[in-house]
Simulated scan of single mutants.
Amino acid sequence: MLVATAVFALFSELDMLSKLLSIPTLFIFMLMALALIVRRYYVSGVTSRVNNSKLIAILVVILESSIATYIYLE
């Protein structure tokens, strides 16, 4: 299935592919990814400051990439 999707994307125009994407759905998936990462890697009172900083940096990268994708597609 992944190969078929990649082949379809390779031979399709970007305008047509961008119309297939639902921005609210992608936003919900991004929020779920952030919540799962926080739930898995952050424990209150146990997580060190260094690991807490790494977690925040990863969350910022995910958030910025989703915003950049939205801006690019609009």
Rank of each mutant, 00 (worst) to 15 (best):
S44T: 11
F27R: 15
I58T: 12
L73I: 12
A33R: 02
T5V: 13
R39M: 07
F29I: 10
K54G: 02
N51F: 13
K54Y: 10
R39Q: 13
I56G: 04
S66H: 14
S65Q: 09
L63E: 10
N52R: 15
L17T: 01
I23H: 02
F11M: 05
L26N: 04
N51K: 08
F11H: 10
F27W: 09
F29D: 15
S65C: 01
I28W: 07
S44Y: 15
E74Q: 09
I62T: 01
S53Q: 10
T47N: 03
Y72D: 03
S66Y: 12
L17D: 03
I58K: 10
M16A: 13
M32L: 14
G45P: 01
L10T: 05
E64A: 15
T5I: 10
M16G: 04
L26C: 01
T47L: 08
F8R: 10
K54N: 08
L14S: 14
L31Y: 04
L14K: 15
I56E: 07
L10R: 14
M32R: 10
N52C: 12
T5M: 14
V50A: 07
E64H: 02
L10D: 12
I37C: 10
I37A: 06
A9K: 13
V3H: 07
R49Y: 11
L34P: 01
E74W: 08
L63S: 15
L21N: 09
K19M: 08
Y42S: 02
L10V: 05
I58A: 13
F8N: 13
